[in-house]
Design a protein around this nucleic acid. Structure first.
Length: 514
DNA sequence: CTAGGGTTAG
């Protein structure tokens, strides 16, 4: 182009830059950046936003920021690109700070902020911003609605979800395919498989995302039969499964312990569908073997898989070893994990616990010192319950709630009643340096049990109690919920980090396999 | 009529 003496026009650069952004090719992008600077066309706002848009994907948000700082006039589109750039790299505070400085905000920049919060797992903030947007007189479009539904899914509050569904229908989005797909996922993550089925049943047309969302919904609720059924059915309807579909179906097998079925499906990816298993699929298989206590198979897969295992893979193996008390392999996995992520809280806590159990006090000291030095602490247990249109949060041994006294009194009552059902606190779930009495208290105050008691106090009599937990539910809390479902004749639905537990009449839908 | 926000996945 240059040799024929045709000057490239500015449109060419926006095309090149968006290609660079997709390729995540930082060096090539910088060459274009320099060329633009040298030719004094950096004042073109189309070029500005294309440049800003390229950097976050290349892992160079700092370059985007310094470039942005040089612009004296902050264009709305360019600022929005900064908001979404910071959101993509997980720096939501920086995104918000730019957002707050913007004047005359339009729909797109509000949407960028909403999806930023949704993807940063701050659903409450996303919904709050959505409300503010409407109060400022701006009506959402389809894209906004999708982000809001996704935020509500992460929040997990069913009443809020139902309200949003009505809003979506009332505003004319109820027939759009992507909206219905998002609603399927929302109901699943809010613990309502019924809602999921209802939305799916009313859809006039479906695509691979609809079917995949259904399969994943059944997977997280432990209904492997329906997950497999829907997988068959989508084949009959000539909908081609994609790689996400396989993540869902393999997860379903993992949650139900169906090793053979999982193996076959994993093999069929290549044999029947010509889909190369990715890291995620290998992760599902490690999970499948790990949960089923086939730790040798899990390790073999990790060591022979065609790509380098990442933090999630080693974490999955480590978690399986923790559950099955396989300390030696667990230590190995934790160490590999720490090589990839030296600040991983779970691996530190796990190592320290293994060493404590084996009375290797020197090692315990080393790990704790390193944690203190790096400022690492264990992620705290956090549980939530929705009540009267409000989401109430509880940490372990939390006394911050306004009705804390009442809740703790109730907890004692509940524990007394559960003792009739032979409930005995299982302190092996707690591995810190506490004496037995302290352990017992720490266990009873596990965050899960607090929202349950609050649900008993405030909820309608006989209604289902829905709890959302940030970590994997511990064995003692699981046992507690099962017994409580019988003793109080209540359905209790707990969403933990990876799946749902439906407790009813003394047993759980996961059949104690999780 | 070429910039910025998007549903399924651990």
């Amino acid at each position: 182009m240059k040799s024929s003496n045709v000057e490239p026009d500015e449109r060419v650069f926006t095309t090149i830059l968006s290609a660079r952004a997709r390729l995540r090719n930082l060096d090539a992008g910088k060459v274009v950046h320099e060329f633009i600077s040298e030719n004094d066309i950096l004042s073109n706002s189309y070029l500005q936003s294309a440049l800003i848009n390229m950097y976050p994907g290349c892992g160079a948000m700092d370059v985007a920021q310094s470039l942005y700082d040089t612009f004296t006039q902050k264009n709305l589109v360019v600022s929005t690109a900064m908001v979404s750039g910071y959101s993509k790299i997980g720096n939501i505070e920086a995104a918000r700070s730019i957002f707050d400085q913007m004047v005359d905000k339009d729909l797109v920049c509000w949407s960028a902020m909403i999806s930023g919060y949704a993807e940063s797992d701050k659903p409450q903030e996303a919904l709050k911003i959505f409300l503010e947007m409407q109060q400022s007189g701006i009506k959402p479009d389809l894209v906004t609605v999708l982000s809001v539904i996704s935020a509500c899914a992460r929040l997990g509050a069913l009443d809020r979800a139902k309200e949003l569904h009505i809003f979506v229908d009332d505003n004319g989005f109820g027939k759009a395919l992507p909206v219905n797909n998002a609603l399927i996922d929302m109901y699943a993550k809010c613990g309502s498989l019924e809602g999921t089925k209802e939305v799916f049943g009313r859809m006039h047309n479906t695509n691979v995302i609809s079917w995949t969302s259904m399969i994943s919904a059944f997977a997280i609720h432990g209904d492997v039969d329906n997950a497999l059924n829907h997988f068959q059915q989508m084949k009959c309807e000539n909908v081609e499964p994609n790689w996400v579909t396989f993540v869902g179906i393999l997860n379903a097998c993992s949650h139900a312990g169906l090793i053979e079925a999982g193996r076959k499906i994993f093999a069929s990816m290549v044999d029947e569908y010509s889909i190369t298993p990715q890291l995620e699929h290998h992760g599902c298989m490690v999970d499948l073997y790990g949960c089923a206590n086939c730790l040798r198979d899990a390790l073999e897969l990790v060591e022979t898989m065609p790509m380098a295992p990442n933090v999630i893979i080693w974490g999955s193996l480590m978690a399986a070893c923790r559950i099955h008390g396989e300390l030696e392999l667990g230590e190995f996995a934790a160490k590999r994990l720490l090589e990839l992520d030296p600040d991983h809280d779970g691996a530190h806590v796990f190592l320290s616990n293994i060493y404590a159990r084996e009375r290797r006090w020197e090692n315990v000291g080393e790990v704790r010192k390193s944690m203190k030095h790096k400022g690492i602490s264990k992620e705290r247990g956090l549980s939530k319950i929705e009540m009267d249109n409000e989401v109430h949060e509880f940490l372990t041994a939390d006394r911050a709630h306004k009705q804390a006294d009442e809740i703790y009194t109730k907890l004692n009552e509940v524990v007394d009643k559960l003792k009739d059902e032979h409930y005995a606190p299982n302190t092996s779930c707690i591995l810190v340096d506490l004496d037995e009495d302290e352990k017992r208290d720490a266990l009873l105050w596990h965050s899960n049990k607090l929202p349950f008691c609050y649900g008993l106090i405030r909820g309608e009599k006989g209604s289902c109690i829905r709890i959302i937990k940030n970590l994997r539910i511990c064995e003692d809390c699981h046992n507690f919920m099962k017994l409580a479902s019988k003793a109080f004749d209540r359905e209790i639905i707990v969403r933990d980090r990876t799946r749902f537990h439906h407790c009813r009449g003394g047993s759980c839908s996961c059949k104690d396999y999780w």
